[in-house]
Design a binder for these strands. Structure first.
Length: 727
RNA sequence: GGGCGGUUAGCUCAGUUGGUAGAGCAUCUCAUUGACGUUGAGAGGGUCACAGGUUCGAAUCCUGUAUCGCCCACCA
């Protein structure tokens, strides 16, 4: 027997070596699998971690989950492909490099210039990518590294440009002046999804524009009132009916205003005074009202730095200061009716914490309700050539079951989200990322990758929202827009397992892009997983300082133990509470397998594996077959936690505690036929337990396999012990 | 404001189509140089949040309540 079995199992001496052997074997690449051509494809794309990031427990969980699924399918005889990649995470990465430059050189991005900054951010990104990639390897992830993709590499750049151009040509990408969420701190537009609402107390001021103005108005944003053009009331509100249609000239805080009274059903008569001061340029709802009533919308009183541009006493003040200035003026003039403290949700930028200032800006949008004729569609409910909208495509993909969501509740969340979806603002005012491929010269606008012929062309300065490129990920990683073999073979992908917080941000947009560009769904099954939380149920976060480094856990307990600790115990979809003790327990389990092996090897040296089983042993053999059939069904129905627990329980409490104990009696008896049968039985039970556990604990099972079955191929590509359908 | 969940043993959570409540950890008792002390055998511990309903039978299905949480949102 191999001497290593005389000592306890040592993951740190094993894992790196085994991973290197797997990589060398080439089997992570499905093209190299035995009988590759006759295998049915099974594809997962890894949700790309940030190129500058480090592995956290959320990644570790995601990697464990997907690797267990891909390994299961590989053993089931599928052409299993798991594609690795990283995301440039434009805003976060640029912000980080800018900060470094500011700190080390005292320069801002404007001092350095666009070209130089983009170069330096790009270099930083590529220089740090190996960190995250080597950490993913330590998890045991069986990713096909030969197909590694980066959102800013040449193939993906081509995909992004092509996607933009096609959607632009179809009229689905347009440029428009719209109220956007402007982050004055980050100096960029951000999408609705990047906003966090914070509850704060605010003062609701009720005031009149002037002494003879008939309607008092309530607002929390007094400073914006210098930009008002109207007061809106509900058409059925008896208090104000007589004023509708009239226009009043006032001088409000030194600023002359012309205020028209309009009737609009959006106004809630119950709130405040039932009258809304309309500031078209600085509020979405006001913008919409102004649009409906043909009011001027170009009266901008706040700039990108959240400072007042209006004339008079508020000129140049920060919005907060201006608010107080206007309030004092109202009090002095006797125009303030009341001041009331209310709690209000303030929109802040997720990344910078800046308070969002709604501003009208020329931005690029994807129109989700814009009708277009779909060139090609394999999505049920939408026929090739149909006139449809992106929203309809997104809805049909899930409603028809073409994208299946085994968890019904997430399906509801998705549909609800689609219903409330607005046009997607895709331009960002930063420099690092995919630059918008549009060029301007006076009134000419051209969409192409490089400058058109002739002088005077200027490229749009903005870059695309990082989710634009991420949304193409399932097919850009397969070489699209080229019609590659990979694209034909592996798309739609089979399985996607994102965190629930990313359902609207990413999942739905992948469905959108894949639907438009390929007429396909991006994946057949989407299994939403929960968040990994700490032992108190809190989110891991930098500010709480409760982070746990998965690499440290691997150093201490081994990757197998960490994987089991994350997957065991909690159903996919609910949050996982991380418990180091659990991981420790699974380290013990790896050692238990090690010792089972030690016993089996000692007792079965030179045994005949094909010896006939006694009736009693046949019963024990059938017992495991039934468990494995159950486990197979669990896998196929995404009940990984149950599969893992059943195998754990069988290995430890049945095979080790009972069958091995019983075997001691058998071997002590005189019955040589029983000896032979039991030897063969033990070996086959152990082999199948290892097979079953391999998707969860790839390292220790592979290591044992090598000794148990020295002439067999890698366990990683060995057949799953249950063949055929289990349904 | 709209939507979606959770509530089961001291703790963390399972419980697949309704059929006598489970695991791990923790606690307690006992055993043991035997493949493994990273061990084994055993014990205690739950009116499955609450109230109704459907059913021969409900942790599971329905209705309502409480409570905790999450997501979405242009009540100024």
């Amino acid at each position: 027997m191999d001497e290593k079995f005389l000592k306890p199992y040592d993951p740190s001496a094993t894992e790196a070596r085994i991973y290197a052997e797997w990589e060398e074997s080439g089997y992570f690449n499905p093209d190299n699998l035995p009988d590759a051509d006759s295998r049915e494809p099974f594809t997962i794309v890894l949700p790309p971690p940030n190129v500058t990031g480090i592995l956290h427990l959320g990644h570790a969980y995601e990697d464990s989950l997907q690797d267990s699924v891909i390994r299961f399918n590989r053993m089931r005889g599928k052409k299993a492909l798991w594609i690795p990649g990283t995301d440039s995470a434009a805003i976060a990465t640029q912000a980080r490099v800018e900060k470094n430059i500011q700190k080390e050189e005292g320069k801002s991005r404007h001092d350095i210039g666009r070209e130089e900054l983009v170069k330096r951010v790009g270099e930083f990104a590529r220089s740090s990518e190996q960190t995250i990639l080597s950490q993913v390897r330590r998890m045991g992830a069986s990713l096909d590294w030969s197909r590694y993709a980066y959102t800013l590499d040449d193939t993906r750049n081509t995909a992004v440009f092509t996607a933009f151009k096609r959607m632009y040509a179809a009229g689905l990408i347009y440029r428009g002046n719209r109220i956007v969420n402007w982050d004055p701190k980050g100096q960029t537009t951000i999408s609705d999804d990047e906003i966090v609402h914070e509850e704060r107390t605010a003062t609701l001021y009720t005031f009149k524009y002037s002494k003879d103005f008939p309607i008092p108005v309530a607002t929390t944003r007094l400073e914006t009132k210098v930009g008002d053009v109207a007061v809106a009331v509900h058409p059925d509100d008896p208090r104000y009916k007589e004023f509708v249609g009239k226009t009043y000239e006032v001088v409000f805080c030194d600023v002359p205003l012309s205020i028209r009274i309009v009737a609009d059903t959006e106004v809630d008569p119950e709130f405040g005074t039932g009258a809304l001061g309309v500031t078209p340029a600085h509020s979405q709802i006001d913008w919409d009202i102004a649009t409906r009533h043909d009011l001027p919308k170009d009266k901008i009183v706040i700039n990108e730095y959240a400072k007042m541009t209006a004339s008079g006493r508020v000129a140049g003040l920060k919005v907060i200061e201006a608010r107080e200035t206007v309030a004092s003026w109202l009090r002095e003039e006797g125009l303030m009716v009341s001041e009331e403290s209310i709690s209000q949700n303030v929109s802040t930028a997720e990344r910078t914490g800046g308070i969002i200032e709604p501003l009208p800006k020329l931005q690029w949008f994807v129109g989700v309700d814009t009708p277009f004729a779909i060139e090609h569609s394999e999505i049920p409910g939408i026929k090739t050539g149909d006139t449809t909208t992106l929203k309809e495509v997104m809805r049909a993909a899930v409603e028809s079951g073409a994208v299946s969501m085994p968890q019904e509740n997430f399906k509801k969340i998705y549909q609800h989200w689609i219903t409330n979806l607005h046009d997607w603002c895709i331009s960002r005012q930063i420099w690092f990322g995919h630059r918008i491929p549009v060029w301007y010269r006076e009134d000419e606008v051209v969409c192409q990758e490089t400058a058109p012929e002739g002088d005077g062309w200027v490229q749009d300065p903005d870059v695309l929202d990082t989710w634009f490129s991420s949304a193409l990920w399932t097919f850009s990683t397969l070489g699209w827009p080229e019609q590659t073999d990979d694209l034909r073979t592996f798309h739609p992908t089979s399985f996607m397992s994102p965190a629930y917080e990313i359902l609207p941000l990413w999942v739905s947009r992948m469905i959108l892009m894949s639907g438009f560009h390929l007429g396909q769904v991006p994946f057949k099954t989407v299994l939403i997983h929960g968040l990994v939380r700490d032992s108190k149920g809190q989110k891991f976060s930098k500010s709480l300082g409760n982070g746990i480094d998965p690499i440290e856990m691997i150093d201490r307990y081994g990757a197998d133990a960490l994987r089991m600790g994350l997957l065991g115990g909690a159903a996919v979809g609910s949050d996982v509470r991380f418990d180091e003790n659990k991981v420790k327990g699974y380290k013990n389990f790896a050692n238990k397998l090690w010792n089972i092996t030690r016993y089996v090897l000692t007792e079965t040296e030179g045994a005949d594996e094909d010896a006939p089983l006694t009736d009693a042993d046949q019963v024990l053999r059938t017992e495991l077959d039934e468990i494995l059939t159950d486990v197979t069904a669990d896998f196929e129905n995404y009940r990984m936690h149950l599969a893992a627990e059943k195998l754990y329980h069988y290995a430890w409490h049945r095979l080790a505690d009972e069958l091995i104990e019983d075997s001691k009696n058998v071997f002590a008896s005189e019955d040589t036929a029983a000896h032979a049968s039991r030897r063969a039985l033990l070996k086959s039970l152990l082999a199948d337990v290892l097979s079953g556990l391999h998707p969860f604990m790839p390292f220790v099972t592979e290591e044992i396999w090598k000794t148990l079955k020295p002439s067999a191929p890698f366990l990683m590509i060995s057949p799953w012990p249950v063949s055929g359908s289990v349904e």
